Simulated scan of single mutants.
Amino acid sequence: MIKAVQKVILLVAFSFSAVSVAQVDDEALAQGADWYDRMNQALRELNFDAALVHVRGQRVEPYRWLHGLSDSGQEIEVLSGLNGPEYKVLRLDDHVSYYHSMGSPYSLRAEVLDGPFPSGFFYPFAEISEAYNAIAVGGGRVIDRPAQHIRVLARDRQRYGYSIWLDKDTGLILRAATLSVDGDVLEQVQLTSLQISDHFPDNLRELKEVTRPPMVEDDSNRREVQGDWDLSWLPAGFKLLRSNHHQMAVTGQQTDYFLYSDGLAKFSVYIGLRGQGTGPVQVEGADSLYAKELGNYMVTVVGRLPFETVKRIADGVQVAR
């Protein structure tokens, strides 16, 4: 089953390593940005019911995805995992609730739920244009619908790119592939069915009054970073979203924490005292991790970035002088 799904999805995959923005005319760049904005507008405004698969290596995760915009302008969105333990996410505007059969439900303040597509896809292209170009590169067909193909290419080799297929009629995303700096496909998300309605769905209307789990208040954000650190190198376009000092949920270790984003990619930096048995760690893949010693501290950087970028960020962390 896994091989069959991967074969279908990979039939239209090909190498992107030869793409150069210098070879692209201004019209293709303008059209790419316009299509990107059509995509995030569709994700915010359309009423749809979709099935999709998220493919990461040998792992295939199926989901059902519903979204609606009510007459009053309220967004309601539901993402449900269809394999394994029961998993569901419900978003009403900026109130996102997570339900998992293996843990207690909770709610967070966020304008986008944590799902298979990058959160940056839900915002205008202007918010990522410092670090990426969007290029319209032709048409195609996905789930028997005419599609527009755009490539979102990083302006440097410090982050991944994306290849995206959008429904030509509505601009809704149909398929997306995450690409390495050399153009290799790291993971893919593909819709397998789609129904679009002119009317707000009744099954979403019922969710407007559902009792939701308590909001998680992030008190740790009110505690200032304890150390005096200098992150001497960051890829261009990354900005600090938050920083704090908190206790790690799993290990109980106290750590200084920094979260950065360029609008599409994110990475986190953790700096805490070295524990017994701790040492350098590295993980390479679509999500990369690198941990190194810095005197009596461990510096860990993790994010959806090439391993070389994550390592360079970690190696640049110093005690401020």
Rank of each mutant, 00 (worst) to 15 (best):
K3N: 11
A4C: 04
V5F: 04
Q6H: 06
L11K: 14
S17C: 10
S20Y: 00
A22F: 06
V24C: 03
G32K: 08
Y36W: 15
R38S: 11
M39T: 04
R44Q: 14
A50I: 00
A51L: 14
V55T: 08
Y63K: 04
H67K: 02
S72E: 15
E75N: 07
G81T: 05
G81W: 06
K88T: 10
D94W: 02
V96Y: 02
Y98I: 02
Y98F: 11
G103M: 09
R109C: 02
A110H: 04
E111D: 14
L113H: 03
G120V: 12
F122I: 01
N133Q: 13
G140M: 07
R145G: 02
P146M: 05
R151A: 09
L153C: 05
A154N: 08
D156K: 04
D156G: 05
R157W: 02
D167I: 01
K168N: 12
K168H: 08
T170R: 05
G171Y: 06
I173H: 03
L179M: 09
D182S: 14
H199L: 05
F200L: 01
D219L: 11
N221G: 11
E224H: 07
Q226F: 01
G227F: 09
G227K: 10
F238L: 05
S243Q: 13
H245D: 02
H246I: 00
T251K: 01
Q253G: 01
T255Q: 15
D256N: 07
D256F: 06
Y257I: 01
F258Y: 15
F258C: 07
S261Q: 05
Y270F: 15
I271N: 01
G279P: 02
A286M: 03
L289F: 05
L294P: 02
L294S: 10
N296I: 00
Y297V: 00
V299H: 03
R304H: 13
R312E: 14
D315V: 06
G316I: 10
V317M: 09
Q318K: 14
